[in-house]
Design a binder for these strands. Structure first.
Length: 384
DNA sequence: GACTCCCGCCATTGG
DNA sequence: CCAATGGCGGGAGTC
């Protein structure tokens, strides 16, 4: 107990004052940003263990959020749980191994799927149905799920729905297939195996957004859109062997506004105005909803509605097509450092943040010069 | 008005 | 029993 009190009404806005509608910026509280900060805070020498409380207070967020981040980081090997409240920092160098393991694991799953399906068709065409029904790829041991029997079926039902596992499965999607770009809907559908229940889907997609955000902040994936359609999707970048923390992806998006890294670490202050509605009401409403919803429209999804999706028949076991993508687009727009610097004007009163800022600026400058060297011209920055 | 996805209630799990 | 964890989905911001 010390430092920053939970309520800290200081928005690092450079404006002198009179910010009447001190805009609540959702972006500045995104999981991705938080993760970026988290990484910057711990991805350095000397760090060995991480305390959740410490992280929470340093980053100025509630514990709950830390769990979110830590879970996905752990599923990629960057962290490991040591004890209650305690994690061990492994670093980015642990990513390749973790990725590889996931890939192998995924390959196995794929095999399994095909064998039980005995329907190995090597269609090269668009329509490439992926597995038939109910069997989300999970690493659970036995599955005795009978649609009719309801009882102590899944003790570890929880684990199956954990953010961590979901993260791994999401990654497997990329690592174990030819797919380079996947939209979250597709991912959700794939990971769900089936159950096109709108509600379930929505929830799953929500989670995927969360995951995608932190994965993005690690530069493992990047947001784009599907080649053909306009649908937003994520592109697998893979691990680019970057010992020092990179921040590009995040900064890229800073172009338009202030989705700037260090902004407001102590962001416990302005929360979006919760609709006046006390907890009780809320709870009740929830219950009612649950009840009314209990009659899950279990329409057996009839149409398979196969997403034309290339689930590369079992990924090449060794080496094969290990996604080795780099940011090869030229779409990265350039903006000038000085401008950003002077414009940004750090209002950090805390040493850590200052430190952090310097760190970022450093990394970014080098990145910037590198890019400008390759791309002499700032490249007509069109709309994103 | 569709997309994103933050927030925090509260069920679970662990000690 | 309480504290640590973390599923989950309402609904507020964004685009």
């Amino acid at each position: 107990m010390s430092d920053l009190p939970p309520e800290n009404p200081n928005l690092p806005l450079t404006s002198s004052s009179s910010s009447l509608h001190h805009s609540y910026s959702r972006k500045q509280k995104s999981l991705g940003l938080l993760c970026t900060n988290f990484l910057a805070l711990y991805n350095r020498h000397g760090i060995e263990t991480i305390g959740l409380d410490d992280a929470a207070s340093k980053l100025g967020v509630e514990r709950r959020r830390i769990y979110d981040i830590v879970n996905v980081l752990e599923s990629v090997g960057v962290l490991t749980k040591r004890a209650k409240n305690q994690y061990t920092w492994k670093g980015f160098s642990a990513i390749p191994a973790a990725l590889k393991e996931l890939q192998e694991e995924g390959a196995k799953d794929t095999f399994h799927r095909f064998y039980t399906n005995e329907n190995v068709k090597v269609s090269d065409d668009e329509d490439d149905e992926e597995e038939s029904s109910s069997q989300p790829l999970s690493s659970s041991q036995t599955d005795t799920s009978k649609p009719g029997s309801l009882d102590s079926s899944k003790i570890d039902n929880r684990r199956e729905k954990s953010l961590g596992l979901l993260t791994q499965n999401f990654i497997k999607l990329f690592v174990c297939s030819e797919a380079r770009i996947i939209s979250l809907d597709e991912a959700a559908k794939l990971l769900l195996g089936d159950a096109h229940n709108t509600s379930i889907m929505r929830t799953k997609v929500r989670r995927l957004y969360d995951i995608a955000n932190v994965l993005s902040s690690m530069n493992l994936i990047e947001k784009t859109h599907t080649l053909d359609s306009r649908k937003p999707a994520f592109k697998w970048l893979g691990y680019n062997g970057e010992p020092t923390f990179t921040l590009s992806s995040d900064l890229m998006q800073a172009e338009s506004t202030k989705r700037v890294f260090g902004t407001d670490l102590t962001n416990v202050s302005v929360k979006r105005s919760r609709t006046h509605e006390n907890a009780t009401e809320r709870r009740i409403k929830m219950k009612q909803h649950a009840i009314a919803d209990s009659s899950y429209n279990q329409s057996s999804d009839d149409a398979h509605e196969s997403r034309r999706y290339k689930f590369g028949l079992f990924a090449p076991a060794a080496g094969g097509t290990y996604p080795a993508a780099r940011l090869e687009d030229n779409s990265k727009r350039a903006f000038d450092v000085e401008n950003l610097v002077s414009d940004y004007r750090p209002t950090y009163q805390n040493q850590v943040l200052k430190d952090l800022f310097a760190h970022y600026m450093d990394a970014w400058k080098s990145w910037y010069s590198e890019v400008t060297q390759k791309n002499p011209l700032p490249d007509t920055s069109k709309r994103h």
